Measured scan of single mutants.
Amino acid sequence: MSIQHFRVALIPFFAAFCLPVFAHPETLVKVKDAEDQLGARVGYIELDLNSGKILESFRPEERFPMMSTFKVLLCGAVLSRVDAGQEQLGRRIHYSQNDLVEYSPVTEKHLTDGMTVRELCSAAITMSDNTAANLLLTTIGGPKELTAFLHNMGDHVTRLDRWEPELNEAIPNDERDTTMPAAMATTLRKLLTGELLTLASRQQLIDWMEADKVAGPLLRSALPAGWFIADKSGAGERGSRGIIAALGPDGKPSRIVVIYTTGSQATMDERNRQIAEIGASLIKHW
C-alpha cells in the first residue's frame, strides 16, 4: 500500500482519535458579512469528516447552483462504474471539434489522439474542462443518470439537468442544476469515506481534487503551510461562485467545507476574496 493510499485508508482512524471539535460562531459572522459585502445569498456548511456531524452552517438547506462543483460527483459516478466493471479508466475516447464547448483548455489539445477516461476526469476536476465533463456525462448516460446515481446514494436534493455550459445559467428560483450545502457536503463525505467506492477509487477521487489547479484564489489562499486540501470550485452566471473541499491540518483532511453564493453584482475577484476570507476565519478558529 502506498503512503497516499495509507493516508486515505486511515482518515477515519486518525479522526477518531482527534480531540473533540467545537464550532466557532466567528466564522458564521464572516459568512454573514460576506453576504453584506456581496449583496447576495451565501450558503455555508462545515462537517466533521469522521462523524458527519454538522459543526457550523448557514442557509444549509437553500438551493444554490452547483456550477462546476458537480464534476466531482460526476467522476465519482464514473469511478463507481469502474468498480462495477462497467468502465475502464484506460479506455480512450475520441471526439471532434464539434464536441468542444466553451472553456476546454485540455480537451482542445487532444482532438487528434483523444483522451482516456482517467485523463478526462483529471481534466474535468483539476482544470474544470467543460468538454471533458460533457464527454464523461455521455459515458454514464447524461445528466439524468448522474441525478439517479445521487438518488441511489441517498441524495434526493442534488440534481443535474443540463450539460456544460448551460448548467451554469443560475436563474433565480430555478431548481435545475442545483444542490443544497448540506446535501453536497453529505454526498461528498460519502464519496470520500464511505463504502460506495473502493479504496482505490476513493484515493483516485481525492487525488484529482488535491491536484486542483484553478481554485488557488479561494480556500487555498488562506491555508497555512502543512495543511491538506482537496477541492473543486465552480463559477456561473449572475454572480455565482462555489467551492467544495476536504481539508485539515497535519497533512490530512478532517472536515468537509461547502460554500456557495449566487445573485451578486460583485466582480469575480471580490467573490473570490470573500470566500478566501471565510476560509481564513475557519482556519483561525479551527
Rank of each mutant, 00 (worst) to 15 (best):
R273K: 07
E270R: 03
G248H: 12
K71Y: 00
A266Y: 03
Q204A: 04
Q86R: 09
R159H: 11
R176C: 15
E164H: 00
S80F: 13
A276P: 01
L223C: 03
P217K: 13
W163D: 10
V258Q: 01
I45N: 03
D83T: 07
R241F: 03
T261C: 13
M67W: 01
Q265I: 11
L146V: 05
I244D: 00
P143D: 03
P143Q: 14
E145I: 04
T198C: 12
M127D: 13
L192M: 15
R273Y: 04
L188Q: 03
A183N: 15
Q203A: 04
V106Y: 14
A235Y: 03
S68Y: 00
T138Q: 14
A225M: 15
K232V: 00
I229C: 15
T262P: 02
T147G: 06
I125Y: 01
K71Q: 00
I140N: 05
N168C: 05
L205R: 00
L196Y: 11
W286G: 02
V42N: 03
C75D: 02
T126W: 08
E46L: 10
L192S: 07
L188K: 00
D155A: 02
P65S: 11
S68N: 01
M67G: 13
F58K: 15
M184N: 02
F70V: 13
Q97Y: 09
E195N: 05
F228Y: 06
F228C: 10
L223P: 03
T131Q: 03
Q265F: 05
E56I: 04
A182M: 05
D250K: 04
T27H: 13
L191T: 08
R202T: 13
L150F: 13
G263K: 12
I171K: 15
Q265W: 11
P165F: 09
R273T: 07
Q97D: 14
G114P: 10
G216Q: 08
N152E: 15
E108Q: 09
T69L: 03
A215C: 13
A222M: 08
K32F: 09
S68L: 00
G114W: 06
I259N: 02
L160Q: 06
P105F: 13
M180T: 11
Y260K: 00
V214P: 14
I206S: 05
H156A: 10
M153R: 04
D83W: 02
A132M: 00
E195Q: 13
P224L: 06
G216V: 09
E26F: 15
T138E: 15
N168E: 06
L150Q: 07
G236Y: 02
V72M: 15
E35V: 14
A222S: 09
D177F: 00
F58C: 12
T139A: 14
L79C: 13
S254D: 11
V42H: 03
T69F: 01
A185N: 00
Q88G: 10
L49W: 13
N50F: 09
I171H: 15
P105C: 04
T27S: 14
A222K: 14
S281A: 12
S201M: 15
T107V: 14
A266C: 13
T126Q: 08
L247C: 11
F228R: 14
Q86N: 15
V29W: 13
V101C: 12
L28E: 06
E87K: 04
R271W: 14
A211R: 15
G85P: 02
A182N: 06
P253I: 14
G114E: 04
G43P: 00
S68M: 00
G263Q: 07
L167E: 01
L196I: 14
F70C: 07
L219N: 04
L74S: 03
T193V: 09
R81H: 06
C75G: 06
L205M: 04
Q265K: 06
T261F: 10
S240I: 01
K144C: 08
G239T: 03
T179F: 01
M268P: 14
S264C: 12
H24A: 09
R273W: 04
N152F: 10
H24K: 09
D155K: 00
A170G: 07
A183W: 13
L28V: 06
Q274R: 09
S57M: 05
R81W: 10
L146S: 02
E210T: 07
T139K: 05
K30H: 04
K232R: 05
K53A: 13
D177A: 01
A77L: 05
G239A: 08
M268F: 07
T179K: 00
T179M: 01
I206G: 06
T262W: 07
L188E: 02
K144T: 11
Q204V: 06
L55M: 10
D113Y: 07
E277N: 13
N168I: 06
E169G: 07
L111I: 12
V78P: 00
G43E: 00
E62D: 05
M66F: 12
A148T: 05
P224H: 12
G236Q: 03
K232F: 00
P105T: 14
G52A: 13
I140G: 05
R202C: 07
C75F: 00
T158I: 03
A245G: 08
S240G: 06
E145D: 13
G142L: 02
G85K: 08
T267H: 10
R59I: 01
R189K: 15
E237S: 09
L223D: 02
N134R: 08
G234R: 01
A170N: 10
L219R: 04
P172V: 10
P253F: 03
L199V: 04
G90S: 09
Y95C: 03
I275S: 01
Q88F: 05
T262Q: 04
L219Y: 03
I206L: 07
T138H: 15
G226L: 04
K213M: 06
T186W: 11
M209R: 01
A215G: 15
A182S: 11
N272I: 06
G85Y: 11
P60I: 15
H285S: 08
E46W: 11
L137R: 01
A124W: 01
L191S: 13
V106Q: 14
M209P: 00
G263Y: 07
W286K: 03
D269L: 13
Y103E: 06
D33Y: 06
L219A: 04
